[in-house]
Amino acid sequence: MTITLHDYSLSGSCYKVRLMLGFLGLDYDRRQVDFYPGRQHKRPEFLAINPLGQLPVLEDDGLVLRDAQAILCHLANRYDGGGTWLPRDPARFGPVMMWLMFAGGELMAASSARLHDVMSYDLDIDAARRSARAAFRVLDDHLTHREIDGATWIVGDHPTIADLACFPYVALSGDGGIGHEEYPAIRNWLREFRKLPGFHAMSGIPEYV
C-alpha cells in the first residue's frame, strides 16, 4: 500500500498535507507538479486526476482525493486511531469542522495575496489583503479568548486539524504583504505550532529552534 502526494513545494495547501503525513509518521511518494511557472496542474494529464486543476491530490489505496481539508479529514480518519487530530466527541467535532472550513474558505484570501506577490497572479491585491485582514482578525479574536482561558489551540487542549489547516497561510502571509504586527495572539499560536514534535519547515516557515 502506497500513499502518493501530488505536491508542489511552495504550496501552502500541499504543506498542510505534508505536515499531517509527518505528524502521523506516514511514508509517502511525492510526485512534484510544476505549478509555477509550468502550470502543469492545468494540463490534461493532471486534469484527468483532478478536474478542478488544483493541488494537492492524494492517492491512497485506490482513492483519489482532492482538497487539502478533505485530505486532512481522510488521513485523520484512517490513520489517527486515537482521534487526536480529529476529535469525534460532539463538543469538539463541530468546532473543528467549522475552523477547517474557515481555513479552506475565508483564510484563502491570504493565499491569493501571496499568489499575486510571489507568482504574479493577476488579481485585486487590495481586496485580497482586506479580506485576509478580516479573516486574521476573526482568528486573532478567537485566540485572544483562548489565551484568557490559558488555552493554546483553536479547539480543545491539543492541536487538531483545525490548527493544522489554518497554520500555513497565516504563517506565510508576509509573502503576500500581510505582516503579523496586529495579531499578537496569532503570533503566539504560530510559535507554539512550530514547537510541536514532528513539525517540519517549508520555504518561508523556519523550524522553531
Partner: peptide, 14 residues
C-alpha cells in the same frame, strides 16, 4: 504590547 502577550523566548514585530 500587553505584557502577557510577549512570551518568554519570543521575538515580536512592533
Amino acid at each position: 504590547a500587553l505584557d502577557s502577550q510577549i512570551r518568554a523566548s519570543s521575538s515580536n514585530p512592533v
